[in-house]
């Protein structure tokens, strides 16, 4: 069975067009299910977000600034970041030192192996 436009990866295959067809079918099914729901449930209170029965907060100030996103991730990885970030000193001569360092290391490896 040879379907055209299929990407052979050696271990598997990937066909975006078939995937899109599957996506469209799933979308169609979801739309069908939704269209069979109760039409009177689409107005009034049902449109409001449900936040455990609390009042919805005002919109203003509701935007979370970027620094606060993934606070947990950076906090959990603190030891990793506290070691990694200091390497990025921003000093031009350090940058040159890294380049020459890697070059020296590779020279040693290439000449000994």
């Amino acid at each position: 069975m040879d379907i055209p436009w299929t990407l052979q990866t050696g271990a598997g295959a990937w066909n975006p067009l078939l995937w899109l067809v599957g996506f469209a079918v799933a979308f169609g099914v979801a739309w069908l299910v939704r269209s069979r729901g109760r039409p009177d449930n689409r107005s009034g209170d049902a449109l409001k977000p449900f936040i455990s029965g609390n009042e919805e907060p005002e919109n203003a100030g509701g935007h979370i600034p970027a620094s606060n996103l993934y606070w947990g991730f950076t906090e959990a990885m603190k030891t990793y970041y506290s070691r990694l970030v200091p390497f990025h000193t921003g000093i031009p001569s350090d940058y040159v030192a890294w380049l020459l360092g890697v070059m020296a290391l590779m020279l040693v490896i290439a000449l000994t192996v």
Partner: peptide, 10 residues
């Protein structure tokens, strides 16, 4: 001083 030319870092 190159050690001070580092507004861009991190």
């Amino acid at each position: 001083d190159v050690r001070n030319i580092r507004k861009l870092n991190g």
